[in-house]
Design a protein around this nucleic acid. Structure first.
Lengths: 165, 165
DNA sequence: ATTGCCATGTTATACTATAACAAACCTAAT
DNA sequence: ATTAGGTTTGTTATAGTATAACATGGCAAT
C-alpha cells in the first residue's frame, strides 16, 4: 500500500506519510515558483500530522505555539494558498480541510468520511464524474466543480460497532 | 414538463409549483402524524417562493414580517423539521436550503447548482450512487449519506455568457 | 381539569470566514 | 547597493452561520 494513500488503515507509517507529503509540496512549489513560506508549511504539516479533516480553528493554537500570529486570517490565507496549489482540499460538509495525497496533478476530488473515527479518504472520482457528466449534459449543464462527500462507517468502525453491540 | 421538477426553466408556473409543494407537504405530514405548524409552513412557502437555494438568515426578515419571532433558532428549528420530513434539503457547499420536489419517498439527493443564476435542480443520483457504492465497497465502507453538489452553468447562462462576450 | 409532551420564545454564545488597512519582506531592475 | 513594486503577514474589526440552554406556551390524551 502506498503510504501517501493509506485508505482507512490506522497503522500506516505516519511519519513517512507526513514527510513525503511535505517534500512533495516543497518540490511542487519550487517547480511552480510559488512560495511555501514557514506559516504555509507549518499549516500543511499540522494537517498531515493529524491526517484527518481539521477545522481552521483547530489549527490556530498550534500556530500560536509556534510563534505565529494566530488570528483567523493567518490560517485562512495559508489554507487558501494550499488549496490553490492542490495541496489540501476543503470538505464542505465538515467545514474542514485535509491533505491531498496526490497534489502533483490537479483533479476532481471526492471523499469517504467515517463518522466513527472521523477519518476521511480521497476517492477516485472518475466513475462518479462520468455518471455526473451524463446527467449534466442531458440538461445542457456545464460542470465547473464537483463536491462529492460520502459519510458512513469504515470497515474498522463497522467491526468496532459489532464488538460493542 | 412536471411543474414540480422544472429543471432550469425560469418560466414555469411558479404559483402552481408552490401550491403543489405545500399541499403535498400538508398531505405527508398528516399521513405521518407530524405537525406542519404555521411557522414551519411559512418557511417552506418562503423557500418555494424563491425556488432557489436560500440561506437561513435570508428567510428571517420574512418571518419577522409575518409576526413570528425571528431569532435564529426559530428558523433553524423549522428547517430541521422540514429536513427530517424530506421537504427541504440542505446544500452544504452553499450553506443554503432548497425545497425538495418529490418528498413523498425519501431518497439520496444531489444537485446541479448554476453559478450564473443561483438556481439549483435536484439530480437523479441513482447512477452516481451506483458509482459511489462500488468505490465504497472496495474499501469496505458502508455508506450512510451522500453529499453531491455540482457547480457550473446551466444552458441559459451559457447562452447569456456567449451573448455578453 | 390535569398531566405531559411538543413547539416556540428568548438570551446568549459558539463556530466559521472575510474585509480592510498597515507593516514587513522579498526580488528584480536599475 | 538602492529602490520601486508586488507579495506576504500582522492586526483589528466584523460578517455570516449555527446551536446551547432554559423559560414559556399550547395541545392532546387521559
Amino acid at each position: 500500500m502506498n503510504c501517501e494513500d493509506p485508505g482507512f488503515e490506522a497503522n500506516h507509517d505516519h511519519d513517512h506519510c507526513m514527510e513525503s507529503a511535505l517534500s512533495t509540496a516543497k518540490e511542487l512549489c519550487r517547480e511552480r515558483k510559488q512560495r511555501l513560506t514557514p506559516v504555509r508549511e507549518l499549516v500543511l504539516k499540522l494537517i498531515w500530522e493529524n491526517h484527518q479533516p481539521m477545522g481552521a480553528y483547530e489549527l490556530l493554537p498550534a500556530l500560536a505555539a509556534a510563534g505565529f500570529n494566530s488570528a483567523p486570517p493567518t490560517i485562512y490565507r495559508a489554507l487558501e494558498f494550499l488549496q490553490e496549489q492542490g495541496l489540501v482540499h476543503r470538505i464542505a460538509s465538515l467545514n474542514a480541510f485535509i491533505g491531498c495525497p496526490h497534489p502533483e496533478n490537479p483533479h476532481r476530488s471526492g471523499f469517504l468520511i467515517c463518522s466513527g473515527c472521523q477519518r476521511a479518504v480521497e476517492l477516485d472520482t472518475a466513475p462518479v464524474h462520468k455518471a455526473l457528466s451524463e446527467s449534466a449534459s442531458e440538461l445542457g449543464f456545464q460542470i465547473a466543480h464537483e463536491t462529492v462527500e460520502v459519510v458512513g462507517l469504515c470497515a474498522d468502525c463497522q467491526n468496532q460497532e459489532a464488538v460493542d453491540a
